[in-house]
Design a protein around this nucleic acid. Structure first.
Lengths: 106, 106
DNA sequence: TAACTATATTATAATATCCTAATATAGTTA
DNA sequence: TAACTATATTAGGATATTATAATATAGTTA
């Protein structure tokens, strides 16, 4: 793995590694595209804060946006992002399972 | 997604989001298990620094370790971790490709 | 058991990330 | 064009993460 990929991979994983940003991506898994207002209202967070998180995801090329009147619609550029989040959940499930089996002495 | 999963997902992605830790995982992709000495010598990093990174990956349940005499051997617990790193690379490749096509005006 | 080897831990200063609050910008509508 | 709505940007202090340096621990071997 060359150092450019290494740096960019780190940077992309950092962009994903925040609860608000994960929640935004989870919202976009169901909805295809969403305006900023919908996102921050649903998450009950400050508008400016959500804008900052959206900027981070957009700067890393994870989201795109397009204007629609006053609103700005955000969507995920690559479905692989959802796959990554699913794999994280898979690992967590396996960890739970092993922990549970460990308690039962298997 | 409940808040426990959200917190743990964030925490796991944070653990992955560091160049040294990504390199450690890349090493373990080829080698199955490695001692600390091999890891820090190959990466040309300080032993104590690598120990700290290994601890982070172990605390998140990404790595396990076992003693082998003086040495401590580390290995990856779940192959899904490699899959995640591959997906990050896939996304980066697509981004490169799109950027290149963009320049050519497609 | 003393010296050695491999690894882990701790303190700390530098840097990065975060949220809040305030303000700016862009598009809409009366 | 003035008021309004949706979003973006900026400054800041608080908190988290990082690498280095020093030290501690555990296992080995002479």
């Amino acid at each position: 793995m060359n150092s450019l990929y290494l740096e960019l991979s780190t940077s992309m994983l950092k962009a994903l590694a925040h609860p608000t940003r994960i929640q935004i991506l989870e919202q976009l898994k169901d909805q295809n595209e969403l305006c900023v207002c919908h996102i921050y209202e649903e998450l009950e967070l400050e508008q400016s804060n959500v804008s900052q998180h959206l900027k981070i995801l957009k700067d890393k090329g994870i989201l795109t946006s397009k204007k629609n009147g006053l609103k700005v619609m955000y969507s995920v550029r690559f479905p692989e992002v959802f796959h990554i989040l699913d794999l994280v959940k898979t690992i967590l499930s396996k960890q739970f399972k092993e922990a549970h089996e460990g308690l039962r002495g298997e």
